[in-house]
Design a protein around this nucleic acid. Structure first.
Length: 255
DNA sequence: ATGACTCCCAGTGGGAGA
């Protein structure tokens, strides 16, 4: 079984690229972030024509998430239950026997901003909800745009990024908090090329110079850890014309 | 260098992203 996550930075713009990517990468399930579409505008028919069922949860202008799957998603949840939020950031469903939680973590903007406080509160709520989900669904996968670079090796210039947004000790502590629930960073189960990033700034020729961050992640529960057979970042879509600034991440689970 | 690019909604500019 293959699953993927991709921050598409506007599904209205990236729909053709998503369909191309799915044709080349026939995953069993996929989560999207930053669809930036209200629910009435979600292009479900095009996605269904590509052979996927889809659940979506969006808003105007910002955020927005979706869950695509070959087989139906059961017990679908949108956002974190009990955590009031104006922003559409989470979509979860059970696909086959797997609990799939797709998440778009807040950016946080700057460590001294109100948005950073929102990010910390959101991450606290997410962690407690994921803890309860793990009790219900031992086979759980949490994937999406975490907006956290967990370690210095996930940052092209750790000195310049030190204590900056995505790299603060508080954000990294939250990432470790998820790991301490029993989740495992699937990407790091394998030897990976050095300077592996999932996001490159649009500005300053960052992709060409390979100056990026690894902020899109796939975390798997203990029950799944032994089944992970591969995990990789697909840089190819970042070479498209009008690319998303993020690349997809794919994980493969043995049956 | 509080920049750069891209997207969105706006409305002939500005916020947000990361």
């Amino acid at each position: 079984m293959k699953l993927a996550t991709w921050n598409v930075n506007s599904l209205a713009v990236r729909l053709p690229q998503l369909l191309d990517w799915l044709a080349a990468n026939p995953v069993d399930a996929m989560v999207l972030q930053e669809t930036k579409l209200t629910d009435d505008k979600f292009p479900h028919a095009a996605i269904e024509s590509a052979g996927y069922l889809v659940q979506w949860f969006g808003q105007k202008t910002y955020n927005g998430v979706a869950l695509l799957s070959r087989s139906p998603a059961a017990d679908v949840v949108k956002n974190i239950p009990g955590h009031a939020d104006e922003q559409a950031r989470v979509i979860a469903g059970t696909v086959s026997d797997l609990r799939v939680i797709g998440a778009y973590f807040p950016n946080g903007q700057a460590p001294d901003s109100d948005k950073f406080q929102y990010k910390l509160q959101w991450m606290t709520a997410l962690r407690e909800w994921v803890r309860s989900q793990l009790a219900l669904y031992p086979k759980l996968i949490l994937l999406g745009d975490f907006n956290i670079a967990p370690e210095d090796r996930d940052v092209h210039d750790p000195v310049a990024w030190m204590d900056q947004i995505h790299c603060t000790p508080q954000e990294r502590a939250h990432f470790r908090g998820l790991v301490e629930l029993g989740l495992c960073d699937a990407f790091r189960l394998f030897e990976q090329p050095p300077k592996s990033w999932s996001w490159w700034d649009y500005r300053n020729l960052a992709f060409r110079k390979n100056q990026g961050l690894r902020i899109d992640h796939i975390l798997v529960s203990e029950a799944l850890r032994g089944k992970v057979s591969a995990c990789a970042i697909d840089k190819l879509p970042r070479k498209n014309e009008r690319p998303s600034d993020h690349a997809p991440v794919i994980v493969e689970l043995a049956d």
